[in-house]
C-alpha cells in the first residue's frame, strides 16, 4: 500500500558557522570546519539534506593533566606531555578540531600566566593545521586574563573561546569581537537560559554566526536525560523559527564521561561493571551517541578510540539514505 511519510515543514534553520581561518582568510589554518545549516532534526535526510556533518573535537591540555583517568594518559602516552605532540596525535586519531583546555596552574603549582597560555596556543597552532578551540581553566578571573591575551596574540584565526557563562561573558565576547574569534556560550540545560545568554551576547554587537551554544550535558547515569531533552527542545525551538536558538550546539561528553566513577576507577568496583577500559570507552561513546541523536553539532571527546568510533558512526549517519 502507498504510504505518505509525515514530513515536518520547519520555518527555521540552524546557522552555519565556520571555525578557523586559512591564510587567505586571515589565519593560518590548513583547513576550516563548517558546522550547522540543518533544516530538520538530526540525520533525517528524507526530510531535508544535512549540509554539514557534526564535527569531533579532541580535548588536549597545555601540559600533562594531573587529574585525568590513567586510561586516557596511557592511550595518548608520550604525546600528552605537551600540547604540540598531543595536537598532532589528536589529528592523527581523526579529530576535526582541537580543544586546548588551559590549566589553572603549571606543573609546579604556580598560577598559569597569559605568557604561558599564549605560548601554548601558538605552539599548538604551529604544530597542527586544524581549527582550534581554547578554553580557560573555568575560574572567571583567570579565564578572562588568559583568554584576552590568547585572543590578541592570534587575531584573525577564528578560534573558539570558552566558556562564556551568564556571570562571565563580557570580557571574552569583547576580545573575540575585537580579534575576529568565535565564542562558546554555556548555560545549564535550559532553553530559556540558553536563549537569554545568546541575547546578552548579541546585544553587545557580537554577530550570531560566531556563537556556538553549549547547553551543558551530564554523562550517562549522571543526568544525560536532562541534557538530551534540553538539546531536543532547543533544536525544535530553532526549527520552529526562534532565531536566538538557531546556533550550532557543542557538547562535552568526553569531559563528563571521564569524570564519572565508571571511567575513572578500575579497582574496587562491582564485577558487573565489566572490563574497565571497555566500560570507560562505552561510557564516553554512548553518552556521545545519545547527544548526536539529540542535535549535537560538535562533540568534544577525550579517548582516541572513541574518536574512531564516533567518526564511523557519523559517516554512516551522513551517508545518503538507502532506499531498499
Amino acid at each position: 500500500m502507498p504510504i505518505e511519510i509525515p514530513m515536518d515543514k520547519w520555518p527555521g534553520a540552524i546557522r552555519t558557522i565556520t571555525l578557523g581561518a586559512t591564510a587567505a582568510e586571515g589565519g593560518t589554518r590548513s583547513r576550516t570546519i563548517t558546522v550547522g545549516g540543518e533544516k530538520s532534526l538530526p540525520f533525517l535526510h528524507f526530510e531535508s539534506e544535512m549540509p554539514n556533518p557534526p564535527a569531533i573535537a579532541v580535548e588536549i591540555k597545555d601540559r600533562r593533566p594531573d587529574d585525568w583517568s590513567p586510561l586516557l594518559l596511557k592511550a595518548w602516552g608520550e604525546a600528552a606531555e605537551n600540547p604540540v605532540s598531543w595536537a598532532k596525535a589528536a589529528e592523527a586519531a581523526g579529530a576535526d578540531l582541537i580543544q586546548l583546555s588551559l590549566s589553572l596552574t603549571d606543573a609546579a603549582g604556580n598560577p598559569n600566566t597569559p605568557q604561558a597560555a599564549v605560548a601554548a596556543v601558538k605552539a599548538t597552532l604551529a604544530a597542527c593545521g586544524l581549527p582550534l578551540l581554547v578554553f580557560g581553566p573555568g575560574q572567571a578571573e583567570m579565564d578572562n586574563e588568559l583568554l584576552v591575551a590568547v585572543a590578541e596574540a592570534t587575531k584573525g584565526e577564528r578560534l573558539v573561546l570558552g566558556l562564556c557563562e551568564d556571570k562571565n561573558y563580557r570580557t571574552i565576547v569583547a576580545t573575540a569581537m575585537a580579534n575576529g574569534h568565535l565564542v562558546s556560550a554555556r548555560t545549564p540545560m535550559d532553553v530559556n537560559l540558553a536563549k537569554q545568554l545568546n541575547i546578552l551576547i548579541s546585544d553587545m554587537g557580537f554577530p550570531l554566526d560566531r556563537i556556538l551554544m553549549d547547553p551543558t550535558t551530564g554523562a550517562l547515569g549522571y543526568g544525560i536525560e536532562y541534557g538530551f531533552s534540553a538539546m531536543e527542545r532547543l533544536r525544535l525551538a530553532a526549527l520552529q523559527g526562534d532565531s536566538m536558538t538557531q546556533l550550532p550546539m557543542i557538547v562535552t561528553p568526553g569531559f563528563e564521561a571521564w569524570k564519572a566513577k565508571e571511567s575513572k576507577v578500575g579497582e574496587g568496583v562491582p564485577e558487573a561493571w565489566g572490563d574497565w577500559l571497555g566500560r570507560a570507552i562505552n561510557w564516553e561513546t554512548l553518552t556521545a551517541t545519545a547527544l548526536l541523536e539529540s542535535g549535537a553539532d560538535i562533540l568534544v571527546l577525550r579517548h582516541p578510540e572513541s574518536v574512531r568510533r564516533l567518526n564511523t558512526v557519523i559517516a554512516d549517519l551522513m551517508a545518503a539514505p538507502v532506499t531498499a
Binding site: 547515569g221 544525560i224 538530551f228 565508571e262 565489566g274 571497555g278 566500560r279 561510557w283 545519545a290
Partner: peptide, 27 residues
C-alpha cells in the same frame, strides 16, 4: 533513544550491557 521496542544483542559483555541498561533507565 530512537524508538526501538525490542533490541537483540549478539555480544554479552558487562562493560557494554551496564551502560546500555543505564542509558535505557535515563531515557
Amino acid at each position: 533513544a530512537k524508538y526501538a521496542g525490542f533490541i537483540v544483542m549478539d555480544q554479552f559483555a558487562p562493560e557494554a550491557i551496564y551502560p546500555l541498561l543505564v542509558l535505557r533507565q535515563n531515557i
